[in-house]
Design a protein around this nucleic acid. Structure first.
Lengths: 164, 164
DNA sequence: TAAATTAGTTAGCAATACGAACAAACACAA
DNA sequence: TTGTGTTTGTTCGTATTGCTAACTAATTTA
């Protein structure tokens, strides 16, 4: 079997594993996968606008808005209109949100970290370097293919043109 | 920054990239991500029952049934009642389904393969070994945590007990 | 100042995903 | 063989996702 084929199969396995873990965490936190992803994104960035969130998660603003609505109702996130630019809406975790993300969501990561730290240091470096390689290749790929959102925006722009 | 933290960040990046690529392919094939995943699973296994598909995709049978309904309407898959065990329903790609999967879905993989084959052979081996490492660690993890479906089944079994 | 752009929301729609309840086929014990 | 429980898949009802199109409000540009 070719190395590249092996790599593809392994990548699928990795995706599948993380997918199942996400569902595990969802179950434990009572959040849906999408809500969880948003919370995680927010945990890493502290302050983001709705648009930035959408770009980060590769979703539409409209979709993010509806996810935010539900998280806001649960009081896990808070929205605040920008003072400098009043069009912008800044989103952040509430205390409850921070608290929730302290629990279950991290334990999966902790498990990974624990396993990861069991292996030799030289191998850790090797894995990181390899992941960098893969991440870079995948990134180059969807630059080649032009990302989804940009295409959507181009289409919309064209439509807008042709409508007038 | 710790090696383990780097690895986690890179993993997230990789997930994100493949996620965006899936959406790209979805757009080109006219299939939703879920439908695409099912078709891919089917391409690799030729003949699966509804239950096997559900397990493979980490979804409920009920969910798989509804996705199958739509793919059947598009005549991309076919259902056939088992002859030996008439409870089972065997699912397979139709000719149209095979044809569709020959096109766009592979080009992304081809892109990856092309990039992958650009790098030195020793580095290819290193990447494969590392991905194996990661896949193994992630796998060990959700064995630790007990997979979603098994928990669901246990719960259901307990409920059935307590009901009688 | 008028026109265009940007940020976000709303509305309406198809699809996903789940649990619960069900029907049919099977397995096995009495 | 009959009855009881199990397995396999579907149907139903519901919440959520994710999209586009249409909209409002604020900002920028001509």
């Amino acid at each position: 079997m070719e190395n590249s084929q092996k790599a593809l199969v392994l990548l699928r396995q990795i995706i599948r594993s993380t997918d199942m873990q996400d569902k595990e965490i969802s179950r434990r936190t009572g959040l849906t996968p999408a809500q969880l992803m948003l919370m995680q994104t927010l945990r890493e960035n502290l302050q983001l606008t709705t648009g930035e969130l959408a770009k980060e998660m590769a979703l539409t603003q409209a979709t993010v808005t509806s996810i935010l609505d539900r998280l806001e109702k649960k009081e896990l996130i808070a929205r605040q209109r920008g003072t400098e630019d009043k069009r912008k809406v800044w989103v952040s975790l509430t205390d409850d949100g921070v608290e929730l993300m302290k629990g279950a969501p991290t334990t999966q990561q902790d498990l990974f970290v624990r396993h990861f730290e069991d292996i030799q240091n030289w191998e850790q470096s090797m894995v990181v370097a390899s992941l960098e390689r893969v991440a870079f290749m995948l990134n180059a790929q969807h630059l080649d293919a032009a990302p989804l959102l940009d295409i959507g925006q181009l289409d919309r722009a064209q439509n807008d043109h042709s409508k007038n």
